[in-house]
Design a protein around this nucleic acid. Structure first.
Length: 425
DNA sequence: GTGCATGATTTCCC
DNA sequence: GGGAAATCATGCAC
C-alpha cells in the first residue's frame, strides 16, 4: 500500500470512528479517546508499520490483526467506503444499455436456424425454396444437401462453443466467488462487490459470446453467398437436353408454348428442371423472333429430323402398322399415333374438318417440320397457297398467333383429340 | 482478352 | 401468373 492510499485510509478511518461506534457501543462524552478508538489507532499503526517489517514479521502481524476483535468492524467500514467510492464510480461506467447489435445477431441466428430449436433450418428451407424456383434439379439437390450439411456443421460448432463458453463462464464465476469469499477473510470484500464482480465476468463472457455469434453469422453469410453464387452460376445444358428442347421448339414452331405437362416431360427427358424449360423457351422464342435468319439452319436440321420421323411414321401407317407405333425419333416422345392415311388426308382438310378429325394437333409438329424442309428446299412456293404452310408463325405484331393464350395442348399425348390453335395456320 | 452463345434474373405488361 | 423484353453473368471458342 503506498503512502497516499495509507493516508487516505487513515483519514477515512479517523472520520469513521463514528461508524465503528455501534460495534463498541461505548463513547466518551467528554471527547477523550475511548479504548476502542485507541484500538483502531493501534491497528492502523500496526498496518502502517507492516511495510517496514520483514516478511515473516509481517505475516505474523497480519495473522495477529486477523484475529483482532475489531477486525469485523474495520472491514465493515472499509467495505462501506469502497462501495461509496470506487464501486459506485465503476457502476456508472459499466452499466451499458442493452446491446442492439447482440439482439440483431440473435435474431439473425434464429432466422437462419442456427440458434433456437432444430427445425431443419428456416433459412435453409427458404434458400432451398428459392433455389428450387430455378436451376438444375439434380445439381441443386446436391447443393441443397451440401448447404444443409454445412449449415448443420455451423450449428453444431456454434452450440458446442456456446456451451463451452457458458460452462467456462459458470466455472470462472464460481471460482471468483469462492476466491472473493476466501479473500473476504483477509481483506474487506462486500457481498455487493462480489455481485458486481460476477456481473463484470458475465459481461466479459457476453462479449466473447457476441464475437462467437458474429463469427457464426459471418460463416452463414459466406455459406449462403457461396450457395447463391453457385445457383446463379450458369452451366450449359447437356447436348441431350438442348436437342430435346430444340426438337420440341421447332416441331411446335407455330405455337412454341409447351403446356405444364409438356414442360415436365421435357424437363424429365432433358434432365433439367421445369423452370429451366420455361426459361429456355422464353429465351428461345425471343431470340428466334429477333433473328430468325440465324436460326434457319438450326430449324432446318430439326425440321428435317422431325420430318423424317414423321415420314417414317406415315410409311409405317400406310403399311398397316399399328396406330400406336412409336415414332422412330431418337427422342421417342413425339409419337405419331395415327395412321398415315389420316396424315395425308390432313392436307385437304379445312379448319372445321381439321378440328373434327381430332388429330390435327398431333400432326402439327410434323407439319411444321415439313414446312421447314419444304421452305429450305425451295418447294415452299408451290404450296404457299395452302393455309397450312405459313411462311412465318409470327404475326405482324411480332407475336405468335396464340401467344397471348398459349395452347395448353402441346404435349403429344395431350394433343390427342383436342383443338390446337395451329390449325388456323 | 474478346466476342459470341446461352442460362438466369429482373422488370414490365396483359 | 405467364410471357416479352432487357439485362446480367458465365461458358467457351478463338
Amino acid at each position: 500500500m503506498d503512502e497516499a492510499r495509507m493516508m487516505a485510509a487513515h483519514a477515512s478511518l479517523s472520520g469513521m470512528a463514528s461508524l465503528a461506534q455501534p460495534v463498541s457501543g461505548e463513547m466518551d462524552l467528554g471527547g477523550a479517546p475511548m479504548p476502542q478508538h485507541q484500538d483502531i489507532r493501534d491497528i492502523l499503526q500496526q498496518i502502517m508499520a507492516i511495510t517496514d517489517q520483514s516478511l515473516d514479521e509481517a505475516q505474523a502481524r497480519k495473522h495477529a490483526l486477523n484475529c483482532h476483535r475489531m477486525k469485523p468492524a474495520l472491514f465493515s467500514v472499509l467495505c462501506e467506503i469502497k462501495e461509496k467510492t470506487v464501486l459506485s464510480i465503476r457502476g456508472i461506467q459499466e452499466e451499458d444499455p442493452p446491446d442492439a447489435q447482440l439482439m440483431r445477431l440473435d435474431n439473425m441466428l434464429l432466422a437462419e436456424g442456427v440458434a433456437g430449436p432444430e427445425k431443419g433450418g428456416r433459412g435453409a428451407s427458404r434458400t432451398l425454396a428459392a433455389a428450387a424456383a430455378g436451376g438444375c434439379a439434380n445439381d441443386n439437390s446436391i447443393e441443397h444437401s451440401d448447404y444443409r450439411a454445412k449449415l448443420s456443421q455451423i450449428r453444431q460448432i456454434y452450440h458446442s462453443e456456446l456451451e463451452k463458453y457458458e460452462q467456462a463462464c459458470s466455472e470462472f464465476t464460481t471460482h471468483v466467488m469462492n476466491l472473493l469469499r476466501e479473500q473476504s477473510r483477509t481483506r474487506p470484500v462486500s457481498p455487493k462487490e462480489i455481485e458486481r464482480m460476477v456481473n463484470i465476468i458475465h459481461s466479459k463472457f457476453s462479449t466473447i459470446q457476441m464475437q462467437l455469434k458474429q463469427s457464426t453469422c459471418e460463416a452463414v453469410m459466406i455459406l449462403r453467398s457461396r450457395f447463391l453464387d453457385a445457383r446463379r452460376k450458369r452451366r450449359n445444358f447437356s447436348k441431350q437436353a438442348t436437342e430435346v428442347l430444340n426438337e420440341y421448339f421447332y416441331s411446335h414452331l407455330s405455337n412454341p408454348y409447351p403446356s405444364e405437362e409438356a414442360k415436365e416431360d421435357l424437363a424429365k427427358r432433358g434432365g433439367i428442371s421445369v423452370s429451366q424449360v420455361s426459361n429456355w423457351f422464353g429465351n428461345k422464342r425471343i431470340r428466334y423472333k429477333k433473328n430468325m435468319g440465324k436460326f434457319q439452319e438450326e430449324a432446318n436440321i430439326y425440321a428435317a429430323k422431325t420430318a423424317v420421323d414423321a415420314t417414317n411414321a406415315v410409311t409405317q401407317g400406310k403399311l398397316g402398322s399399328s396406330p400406336s407405333t412409336p415414332n422412330s425419333s431418337s427422342s421417342g416422345s413425339f409419337k405419331v399415333s395415327h395412321s398415315g392415311e389420316s396424315y395425308l388426308n390432313l392436307q385437304a382438310l379445312n379448319g372445321d374438318a381439321y378440328q373434327s378429325s381430332q388429330l390435327g394437333a398431333n400432326i402439327q409438329p410434323q407439319m411444321d417440320s415439313l414446312h421447314h424442309v419444304i421452305h429450305a428446299t425451295g418447294r415452299y412456293d408451290s404450296i404457299a397457297g395452302n393455309p397450312l404452310y405459313e411462311p412465318q408463325h409470327i404475326d405482324a405484331n411480332g407475336r405468335w398467333p396464340s401467344s397471348s393464350t398459349p395452347s395448353s395442348i402441346t404435349s403429344p399425348a395431350a394433343d390427342l383429340g383436342s383443338v390446337n390453335s395451329d390449325a388456323s395456320n
